[in-house]
């Protein structure tokens, strides 16, 4: 026992190997391995009569992805939805986070954070269904808007963007709140002392400092929206996103589903690599 401990003590490489053996087996072999196999199967094809997978190499699925009008349109629509949701979340989250982190009395701040975290852990499905009820004809939204001569959006693309924004909003507010809270007062005071007005301080001091937090939040809003297929089913009416296409092909044509699935994966990995430059990934 002491001998083993001595060896551990003398050899950092051994310690590192012991630390990493189990997690890397899990993460690389089990997780990344299964992902790799899935995407390889995108190069296979299925027997049109039995739906069995035929292991002959072909680029047909990826060719279909590029040439089929529907797939292209749905892929672009999904990316558009993810970007719209992210943009809406940033715009809505910033003032709220600014209030909870810098305007509200310090005594209230921990409570406000709990108030932000609670809806996050309320069931995703229940929230989506609550919106379905609200968006229904004659539902709460219509009831609220009718006096102003307006109609609720009903089910469809607008409803999908609205509901996804609602679902992921706390994921954006919380990192921005944390980022704003970390900015020391002295920096803002220094900026004011040097003659910058509030708007200038906001733009040249505060915004650059919280940009990594915004990027961290956007990882969630963007990737969760891009992969979603359940909220769309609940409030999207006939709207289809890339997740729905993957889902509807899984049982009958797994290779095609895998090829379709590469679209969000590639987009998200590129997005993550871009975001990593801001140093945001470590503050998720």
């Amino acid at each position: 026992m002491t001998k083993a401990a001595g060896m551990l003590h003398r050899s950092p490489r051994l310690r590192l190997a012991l630390l990493l053996a189990a997690p890397l087996t899990w993460l690389v072999v089990a997780y990344l391995g299964s992902l790799a196999v899935l995407f390889l199967s995108g190069l296979w094809t299925t027997d049109p009569f039995t739906s069995d997978i035929v292991r002959s190499w072909t680029l047909d699925n990826f060719r279909a992805l590029v040439t089929t009008e529907v797939y292209r349109r749905v892929a672009l629509r999904s990316i558009g939805v993810a970007l719209a949701v992210t943009a809406l979340c940033v715009v809505i989250a910033f003032p709220i986070a600014f209030y909870t982190a810098r305007v509200a009395r310090p005594r209230w701040r921990p409570l406000l954070v709990v108030a932000l975290l609670t809806p996050l852990w309320a069931s995703y499905l229940v929230k989506a269904y609550a919106w379905r009820v609200m968006l229904a004809r004659g539902g709460l939204l219509d009831w609220l808007l009718t006096p102003f001569g307006l109609d609720g959006p009903g089910y469809g693309l607008t409803a999908t963007i609205l509901v996804l924004t609602y679902l992921w909003l706390p994921y954006m507010i919380l990192p921005i709140h944390a980022g704003l809270e970390r900015v020391p007062d002295s920096l803002l005071d220094a900026s004011a002392d040097l003659g910058a007005r509030t708007a200038r301080t906001l733009r040249t001091v505060l915004l650059p400092l919280v940009l990594p937090s915004v990027a961290a939040g956007s990882v969630f809003t963007f990737s969760l929206s891009l992969g979603d297929y359940i909220a769309v089913q609940i409030v999207g009416g006939k709207t289809q996103l890339i997740g729905n296409l993957v889902y509807s092909n899984i049982t009958l044509d797994l290779p095609l589903a895998a090829a379709l699935g590469t679209v969000p994966v590639v987009v998200i990995v590129l997005y993550l690599l871009a975001v990593r430059r801001t140093g945001a990934l470590s503050s998720l």
Binding site: L20, L24, L27, V28, A30, Y31, L32, G33, S34, L35, V37, L38, S41, V219, S223, L226, G227, D228, Y229, G243, V246, Y247, I250, L254, A257, A258, G261, P264, V265, I268, V269, L272, R276, L281, S282, L284
Partner: peptide, 27 residues
């Protein structure tokens, strides 16, 4: 690379993770 790979399972769509694991488990 490791700290990047750790983020992937939560950032990639659940449907992809789900199908990949499903296929792996069954095989």
């Amino acid at each position: 690379a490791i700290s990047f790979a750790v983020v992937l399972p939560i950032a990639l769509p659940g449907i992809i993770t789900g199908v990949a694991l499903n296929t792996a488990f069954r095989t």
